[in-house]
Computed example of a mutant assay.
Amino acid sequence: MSDLLFTVENKVAKITLNRPESLNAFSGEMVENWIKALETIRDSDDIRAVLVSGNGRAFCSGGDIKEMIAGNGFYKSKNDISSSGLSRKNSLWKKIQRIPLLLEEIDQPVIAKVHGLAFGAGLDMALMCDIRIVAEGTKLSESYVKVGLVPGDGAAYYLPRLVGVDKALDMLWTGKVVEAEEAKGMGLVTFVVPEEELDSFTDQYLEKLVTGPQQAIRLTKRALYQSRNMSLRSSLDMISSSMGLVTELEDYQIGVQAVKDKTKANFQ
């Protein structure tokens, strides 16, 4: 079986980490297949939402230390004997760091369904998603410091944007483990649900996205992310262009007519 499963069902692309025996620790194969899956999603007009999850007892325990050691670097081939700092940097850039860069190009909503634990790069993968739906009892940690590493997979970018610089530094400096409810209070995760309801809650949430007005959803996502690096004037200019586009689409006409019909019925 592949270390990563990729399927498309009912317009939802499902990326499933599939190394349950190692709590879905990243392997080279997993990263390569993840990149291919994201390229497919980015270029598809039929996929309306993306779900990232993990098989077994956990979402993801981070990088596979054994594979990193065997490959003399970060997710490199075991046959690659190079071990310079530059080669390790390039390996990160060409492999696992391609994932956040590709996600930045994807306008469809990306949902992380997290259970068990999400540590190190595993937590970073959840932070890269738009929404994090987490089971009660889940443990989260930026555990890089425990093995003397810096957060190489995006935590330095995503974490302070979600929880603030001070809380991000606290997590990264100490490698502390955060429980699901505390994580929600920090703004680290979006929803916390009972574990037995995790699948049904996530499915219902995805259904709302899949049946919603697609261009409005995608342009809204693009506006929010791009506005973080824009002036107010540029952001308003961009969103007014999007408004001009969506008001020409059928979804808008249907929505307006539905509101008219409901208003008329209320006054009859």
Rank of each mutant, 00 (worst) to 15 (best):
T40S: 12
I41C: 12
D43R: 10
D45G: 13
D45S: 15
D46G: 00
A49N: 12
A49P: 09
V50I: 15
V50D: 08
L51Q: 11
N55D: 15
N55M: 14
N55R: 14
G56C: 13
G56E: 13
C60K: 04
G62T: 05
G63C: 12
D64A: 12
I65M: 13
I65P: 03
K66C: 01
K66F: 03
M68Q: 06
N72Y: 07
G73P: 05
Y75I: 08
N79V: 00
I81Y: 06
I81T: 11
I81L: 13
S82M: 02
S83Q: 10
S87K: 12
R88A: 08
K89D: 05
N90W: 04
N90Q: 14
S91H: 08
K95L: 00
R98K: 15
L102T: 10
L103P: 00
D107K: 11
D107T: 09
V110W: 01
I111N: 04
A112G: 09
K113C: 08
V114S: 03
L117K: 15
A118L: 07
A118Y: 07
A118G: 12
A121F: 01
G122I: 03
G122D: 05
L123C: 08
D124S: 15
D124I: 00
M125K: 06
L127M: 14
L127D: 09
C129E: 09
I131V: 15
I131R: 09
I131A: 01
A135V: 02
G137L: 02
T138E: 04
T138H: 03
K139I: 04
L140Y: 03
E142A: 15
E142Y: 00
S143W: 05
V145C: 09
V145E: 03
K146A: 07
L149T: 02
